[in-house]
């Protein structure tokens, strides 16, 4: 378990967290590897994990009846993946599919929720870090939403 702790400590999401809090998190953690093409999770499944990505690339996709799966974003080394474990009803809102071999530390969502409830300091610290990620993702999404590279030609009929 010690190596898992080290790996966690080095990850940007965990860096700087109090040792006792890292300890608590390690209690919910396990290693996970996903081969390219494998799903980490799929839409509407119960969201029981929180992934801390170490390497590889995961595509977040929404399945549309007309066009099939549409990739919305890819995440990889240094990123975290998933917050549905934190927010009721704890189900995934999209598909997460490895497009390269992906190594991650998988944290048990229920376990983590329990620890956060018991130790609000840990809970708040994690929440702040997650909020930071939310903000970055939301900003990136906004920019993506602008469709800035598309052509807007007023005289185009």
């Amino acid at each position: 378990m010690e190596s898992l702790e080290k790996i966690l400590q080095q990850h940007p999401f965990i860096q700087g967290l109090a040792p006792e809090h890292v300890q608590l998190i390690v209690g919910c953690a396990k290693n996970a590897v996903f081969e390219a093409g494998k799903f980490l999770f799929q839409e509407d499944e119960e969201a029981s994990e929180f992934y801390i990505l170490r390497s590889g690339k995961v595509s977040l996709e929404i399945f549309t009846p007309e066009y099939g799966p549409v990739a919305i974003q890819t995440v990889g080394e240094g990123d975290i993946l998933g917050w549905s474990w934190l927010i009721p009803p704890y189900v995934w809102r999209m598909d997460g599919r490895a497009i390269e071999t992906t190594r991650a530390i998988s944290l048990d969502g229920k376990c983590l929720r329990g620890k956060c409830e018991k130790d609000p300091k840990l809970g708040y610290e994690l929440m702040k870090r997650l909020a930071n990620v939310f903000e970055q993702r939301l900003n990136a999404m906004r920019l993506q939403l602008l469709d800035i590279y598309s052509i807007k030609v007023p005289d185009k009929k």
């Binding site: 690339k57 595509s59 977040l60 996709e61 066009y67 099939g68 799966p69 549409v70 990739a71 919305i72 974003q73 890819t74 990889g76 080394e77 240094g78 497009i99 390269e100 970055q136 990136a140 920019l143 993506q144 469709d147 590279y149």
Partner: peptide, 23 residues
């Protein structure tokens, strides 16, 4: 290289270019 949207045939990055900077 990253694109704003892609079908599954694309194995590269999806997302705005700024998300590549920290990597």
């Amino acid at each position: 290289v990253t694109v704003d949207r892609a079908a599954r045939t694309w194995n590269g990055n999806v997302g705005v270019v700024t998300t590549l900077i920290p990597r």
